[in-house]
């Protein structure tokens, strides 16, 4: 194949891609095709609609809280704008929502819901954790924990966990949208109070069949987990957590729920 003929095919494909992602259906942008008139328009419209429909269906699954807050019509408008502004990079639709939280933060018309981007980050974390690797804490890790100086050890958080900090009450908002009997006056008050929350999300023992769980972290536990995530030693993380933190109780629950992947050398004191 000559470089010229390869370029011809590449340009043909680029033109069709550009016509599909263009803001408006414009037959002038379509590459030369056999079909003309209304048949050409219908063909191009089908391709413009198919990819978007596939993405929209995936986004609805990946962002149930955002969908519930915006409603079907507004969510579909958001999906369409997102699809064109941040086109998919992968052929696996499981990743199509990867950039939606960041995109929401840039949309001026969503300024009235300043917590929406963080709610989207939480939705995305839950989606990711539903398929994350299970924890891999071993007996050898526990032995190191018992035998070695905690100043020289760090705890590795499991891949099936996530910490999502927010200036808004994202856990309260998320849980309310899953509860048919939610107390919405409480949700409104939490938003008005500017009650910040850090969500802690995990899949119990990495069990694929288990529901992903989430809680709002207490301040001390939040500081502890943030320090561990930054690679602090156990001693360093305890210092960060402060005196209110109950290490023994946390550790017991961490082992029961599968929050840890193992013990490592800290990257910071």
């Amino acid at each position: 194949m000559s470089a010229a003929t390869h370029t011809t095919e590449l340009e043909r494909q680029q033109r069709l891609i550009a016509a599909i992602f263009a803001p408006q259906l414009d037959l002038a942008t379509c590459p030369d095709v056999l079909q003309d008139g209304a048949r050409r328009e219908a063909g191009l419209a089908a391709y413009r609609g198919n990819g978007l429909a596939h993405a929209r269906n995936a986004l609805r699954l990946q962002f149930p809280t955002v969908l519930a807050m915006l409603g079907d019509d507004a969510f579909d408008v958001l999906s369409a704008r997102y699809w064109r502004a941040r086109p998919p990079r992968r052929g696996d639709l499981a990743w199509v929502g990867e950039e939606l939280p960041a995109y929401i933060a840039t949309v001026d018309s969503l300024d009235a819901w300043p917590w929406l981007a963080d709610c989207a980050r939480l939705d995305w974390a839950i989606w990711q954790i539903a398929g994350a690797a299970p924890p891999c804490m071993t007996h050898a890790d526990l032995q190191r924990l018992a035998a070695e100086d905690p100043a020289g050890l760090s705890l590795q958080l499991a891949a099936c966990t996530a910490r999502i900090p927010s200036a808004w009450p994202i856990v309260t908002i998320h849980l309310a949208h899953q509860d048919a009997a939610a107390d919405w006056s409480m949700v409104r008050q939490a938003i008005l109070d500017g009650a910040s929350q850090t969500a802690w999300v995990w899949r119990p023992q990495g069990d694929a069949a288990a529901e992903v769980r989430l809680i709002a972290l207490e301040d001390a536990a939040d500081r502890w987990i943030a320090a561990l995530a930054a690679g602090a030693s156990i001693v360093g993380a305890l210092d960060a957590a402060g005196e209110d933190f109950d290490f023994a109780t946390w550790m017991q629950r961490a082992l029961a729920e599968g929050w840890l992947d193992g013990v490592a050398t800290p990257v910071s004191p």
């Binding site: 891609i17 599909i20 391709y47 993405a55 086109p87 998919p88 992968r90």
Partner: peptide, 10 residues
């Protein structure tokens, strides 16, 4: 944008 994927069979 770089290389995009149209999520369709073109």
């Amino acid at each position: 944008v770089g290389i995009v994927h149209a999520s369709d069979l073109l």
